[in-house]
Nucleic acid binder design. Structure first.
Lengths: 254, 254
DNA sequence: GTTTGTGAATCCATTCACAGCG
DNA sequence: CGCTGTGAATGGATTCACAAAC
């Protein structure tokens, strides 16, 4: 464990080794979800093996990930569910509330506004904004949609720190520039464009069609060998529930 | 290790068109989108530097990625846009049509059904299914929603090869088992659960709240140091368009 | 006995830097 | 010249495997 200095930030407090790997950060929410499910079932303690299975990763990875937060397990026993929930939540910053605004209330924006997973994780949707006069004024999930002209006001009044952009592609960069100018430093972008932002702003993007394209790539491989030609929408042949081939690939599904 | 697919491991091949790194595959759709935008602007030729900027990556990475597909550029000149579009499309399997079914037509499913990015990339939505009697029969984006009982029929009749699951969490695994039994080998999952599938099935998941949580983590870091107390929703102080600190962070959004 | 936490080994991805080609 | 394509170097992330802790 080389406590080599970290890339971000300077003031590392005496507390824990700051500098959790990005790949680990991306998995913590998954562990958290699995832990919440265990909590709901009344489970008090869990081993790395069990939790890993519930989260869909392997146990060595899980242990390494958790070790970046500290030593929260007990050898020979496992992890106390409640305690681990708290530690991960704290690390992710979910013990405080985050104020979110959603810009663009087409189908996707509506879906996001009503998404239960936000509220339950400490995200509070405080503003809905759109440019379309027919949408402005509508009530969606208990909030009235405001005109995009009010963007800066809404951000300032509610202390919005995360903006969710669900506008058409053409409008996204302009909206992004405005939210950044108004002080927002985290953006979740659903529009299919690459946003450019100042270096101190974080952007994450979700692109539905990209995910499908990645699936198509793998699907294509399964279907025909190197000699394309398989046709038939990439489906090998078995229409009813049998694996494409009895081929035994290495390393089973653990 | 759910979405795992092995495929290589025996038969080590030379530098064939086969064996494209997963990270590269995930970026090809981004390049493709940037190329389409260039095409629309009538650009015929592009350098790795320009295309990289449009796609939001650095040029060395772009060139390395493209080199996995073959040598499609001209030294001293760049890449011919149209030709590159074709090559990437072919590699991703987008020169054929993929038949998709969407299961679950709540807000999110509706958004997906109407998403333009699907049709434009060769994905044809051929079936919409839901369990809720109030939703069955509704027309959404030109298709009539069918009862989930018809799932296997729809998959068989239309040759569905990709299933998009947008059901509540509790229903997702059951639906997944059924689509897999019916022969689907690629699943795009929007439900917040880890699906378990046979090894020959690919799953990709999109979890909106996970993305927000990752943002929260970074936002928290920016806001206050280790000494909590910063309050104010993580927003540093500048309310109007000035960077939080004159600090020079490393690594921007690349 | 069981299970964690972690060095060491391995694998994968990114970046560098330049040879080679137009 | 300018720009691609790619070996070599670097840096992360994953996995292995086991000693330490309960």
């Amino acid at each position: 464990m080389t406590p080599r200095q970290t890339r971000h930030r300077d003031r590392v407090d005496a507390a824990r080794p700051r500098g959790i790997p990005e790949a680990t950060v991306a998995r913590l929410p998954v562990y958290l979800r699995a832990l919440h499910a265990l909590q709901d079932r009344g489970v008090a303690t869990v081993s790395s093996e069990e939790l890993a299975a519930a989260a869909g990763v392997n146990s060595a990875k899980l242990r390494k990930d958790l070790s970046h937060l500290g030593s929260y397990g007990t050898r020979g026993v496992g992890y106390e569910v409640e305690y681990l929930v708290y530690q991960i939540s704290r690390e992710l910053g979910l013990t405080q509330d985050w104020v979110v605004a959603i810009i663009g209330l087409g189908n996707l924006g509506r879906a996001l506004a009503g998404y239960g997973g936000f509220a339950s994780r400490g995200f509070r949707v405080a503003g809905l904004l759109d440019a379309d006069e027919r949408i402005v004024g509508q009530e969606i999930s208990g909030l009235s949609v405001q005109h995009i002209d009010r963007l800066e006001d809404v951000i300032g009044e509610h202390g919005v720190s995360i903006a969710v952009i669900a506008t058409p592609a053409g409008a996204a960069q302009g909206v992004c520039d405005r939210v950044v100018a108004a002080g927002v430093t985290s953006v979740l972008n659903f529009a299919p464009v690459v946003l450019s932002v100042p270096e101190w702003v974080d952007v994450r993007k979700v692109d539905l069609s990209i995910e499908l394209q990645i699936l198509a790539f793998h699907e294509q491989r399964k279907a025909g060998g190197p000699d394309g030609a398989s046709g038939l929408n990439g489906r090998p042949r078995g229409l009813n529930g049998s694996p494409p081939e009895p081929v035994q690939y290495v390393e089973a599904a653990e």
